[in-house]
Nucleic acid binder design. Sequence first.
DNA 1: TCAGTGACTGACC
DNA 2: GGGTCAGCCACTG
Length: 114
Amino acid sequence: MSPENKNFFQKVYEVAKQIPYGRVTSYGAIAKYLGAARSARMVGWAMNGAGSMPEIPAHRVVNKIGLLTGKHHFDGTNLMQQLLENEGIKVVDNQIQDFDKHFWDPFTELKSRL
DNA sequence: TCAGTGACTGACC
DNA sequence: GGGTCAGCCACTG
């Protein structure tokens, strides 16, 4: 099957799964990469389902300012932050420090794979 | 079936 | 520089 035939959610999952260790990306970046820049909310919704998939590092997906808006959906209260810190990413007040340095752009990293 | 909600973003004032 | 508005689409009651 061609990637284009896959569901939007499935595409989101594939991109999310390719986020390397110690890196993060944004909902909008994934949405834009999938050709649905205005459907960033759907990416977030997809992450809701990704929460049941251990292979998908949903904790590496945050909003465009590096804010852990989805941490509330993780088990416990600061699991998302703990996971990020475990990867060497500093998180203060639910916000990633040096977000631009840890940012992982699907276009930059995946465009050469297409 | 209809209307409200949501892990967002960009544009506008 | 900061608050507000509209758009996007799937899911729930």
